[in-house]
Lab assay of single mutants.
Amino acid sequence: MDETGKELVLALYDYQEKSPREVTMKKGDILTLLNSTNKDWWKVEVKITVNGKTYERQGAVPAAYVKKL
């Protein structure tokens, strides 16, 4: 869990989004888990830093590609 009490997951593999509802992640990324009720796809929040600014993006990733921490 992070400092706000939200559950975290670890990306076990790289994943490139294939639709606007998904998010890209790299192996080793730590993501915030938002919903894991679907056994195949979990909704997560990814933090992306671009030019020193951090953005948050929500989307789905394959459940088999992440592990709860």
Rank of each mutant, 00 (worst) to 15 (best):
M1Q: 13
D2W: 12
D2G: 14
E3W: 12
T4E: 13
T4F: 12
T4R: 14
G5R: 14
G5Y: 13
G5A: 12
G5D: 11
G5P: 14
K6N: 10
L8T: 07
V9M: 03
V9L: 09
L10S: 03
L10Q: 09
A11C: 12
A11R: 02
L12V: 06
Y13P: 01
Y13D: 07
Y13K: 13
Y13R: 15
D14Q: 01
Y15M: 00
Q16Y: 13
Q16R: 09
Q16T: 14
E17A: 15
S19P: 03
S19K: 05
P20F: 08
R21W: 15
E22I: 04
E22Q: 10
E22H: 05
V23Y: 02
V23G: 01
T24D: 01
K26N: 06
K27R: 11
K27C: 07
K27Q: 08
G28Q: 01
G28D: 04
D29G: 02
D29F: 05
D29W: 10
D29A: 05
I30M: 06
I30G: 00
I30D: 01
L31D: 00
T32E: 07
T32V: 15
T32G: 06
T32R: 13
T32C: 11
L33S: 00
L33R: 00
L33W: 01
L34G: 01
L34T: 04
N35F: 04
N35Y: 04
N35K: 07
N35R: 06
S36P: 05
T37M: 10
N38Y: 06
N38S: 09
N38L: 06
K39T: 10
K39D: 10
D40H: 13
W41R: 01
W41D: 00
W42A: 04
W42M: 02
K43P: 02
V44I: 05
V44E: 00
E45L: 14
K47G: 05
I48P: 00
I48V: 13
V50H: 09
V50G: 05
V50N: 07
V50D: 07
N51Q: 09
N51I: 02
G52M: 04
K53G: 08
K53F: 12
K53W: 08
Y55C: 11
Y55D: 05
Y55P: 00
E56L: 15
R57V: 09
R57H: 07
R57I: 09
Q58N: 07
Q58D: 04
Q58M: 08
G59F: 10
G59E: 01
G59N: 00
G59D: 00
A60N: 15
V61T: 01
V61S: 00
V61F: 01
P62Y: 06
A63H: 03
A64F: 09
A64N: 12
Y65G: 07
Y65N: 06
V66Q: 01
V66F: 04
K67V: 15
K68V: 11
K68H: 07
K68W: 06
K68I: 14
L69E: 02
L69P: 00
